[in-house]
Design a binder for these strands. Structure first.
Lengths: 209, 209
DNA sequence: GTCATCATGGACCAGCCGGTCACGAACCCG
DNA sequence: CGGGTTCGTGACCGGCTGGTCCATGATGAC
């Protein structure tokens, strides 16, 4: 009944996400956005509503993906404690690359949380979700006898959220990958690992040049 | 020989720091800046050179202060390990207040490090300074027998940088003070503390409601 | 084939952006 | 007390901001 869109909404959001992640909300103009997404002024306007709305779509999408990335820690072939280490290594490698920038999630949290209630509540909810995923993984490791029973799984969960957020910020400022990996491995010392857990982890480091 | 200024340069920078910390570089207009600092357009221009220059002054000042705050960890009446804990508690309390925003240092690091070389190098240098201060304090604690000799002081130093940066980001997004304190205390579990060290720390938590 | 419907692209807008100019006021030194 | 130099104030600039209007084009249901 009507002319169909010539663009893929999800694709546009992905491109917008990249643009906003590069230069932040205030630092990204509509023109830049149009060039990055390839669509025309009016198309953006009646498909999304405006700059702010498109930003929120991109931001929510990024936040969901960030939580999902942590959620994957719950499944996998590795032992629970090995999956935690893998996650830390993954973040260090991603954020430690030469031209790595903080994710839109982190960038929006720092830029807008203080002034935009929706951003703030989304960020807080995402952090809580991530914490719970980490905590659940730690609890699983406890059940498997890899971590001492006296460990506080919830506290360790939020702790790893903070560590990863810190690694992301440091990495975005040019701190080397090897340093980030050190931070990740050092943070694992906060976990009271049992002998069994140490056995499951193996020697530890591979080749991460 | 000439008309003296009616404003205090340091005071202007302090106000500008607050304004930039609130809304970021791109998000703070010259008009906002003029209102915040109280000076006239031209005064700002011929005293500092422009928006970017004033921002750099504010940013460098904030970075220096941030390093200085960590540097204070080297001196104090407390035992070395106690001073580390105090620092973590201090950050948690500051960043955990209801209307806390990330410092200009953190905000600039996230917003501009990827695009501005001077910001990036300043941030990196500041992180390295902070790391060294933490590492030195840990080494001191090792010398005092509070921390096991096998601990890697350098790795722990950068680790605490990451933790504090993470706490700052989380706090700015509305995470509760108690949660931040938990993160701080949990992070200390990464330090292999000796019995003597534990003794010096005492029971641990006071009243931080 | 016709027509209602929606996407598109260009023109256009008021307002704000950071920055500049010209001029009068304030000051210290001689 | 006058001269030279700096400072503060207002008006002003071109350009860009996010947002809107409207004519045109493409589409598919009937």
């Amino acid at each position: 009944m009507a002319r169909p869109r010539t663009f893929d909404e999800a694709d546009v959001i992905a491109r917008a996400r990249k643009a906003f992640a590069d230069t932040g909300f205030a630092g990204t103009s509509l023109d830049t956005l149009l060039e990055a997404t390839g669509l025309a002024r009016q198309s953006l306007y009646n498909a999304f509503g405006g700059k702010k709305e498109l930003f929120m779509r991109a931001f929510l999408s990024d936040a969901a993906e960030a939580v999902e990335a942590v959620e994957s820690i719950r499944h996998g072939e590795d032992s629970p404690i090995g999956r935690i280490r893998s996650q830390l290594v993954k973040v260090a490698v991603e954020q430690g690359s030469a031209q790595a920038a903080p994710s839109l999630f982190t960038k929006a949290a720092v830029e807008l949380s203080a002034r935009d209630a929706e951003v703030a509540s989304t960020v807080e909810a995402a952090f809580e979700s991530m914490s719970r995923h980490y905590a659940a993984c730690i609890a699983e490791a406890q059940a498997a006898g890899e971590i001492e029973a006296y460990a506080d799984a919830d506290a360790l969960g939020t702790f790893f959220c903070a560590v990863i957020e810190g690694m992301s910020t440091l990495g975005g400022s040019g701190v080397a990958r090897a340093t980030l990996l050190d931070i990740g491995f050092t943070s694992m010392a906060a976990i009271p690992i049992t002998d069994l857990g140490r056995e499951h982890l193996g020697t530890g480091d591979g080749d991460w040049s």
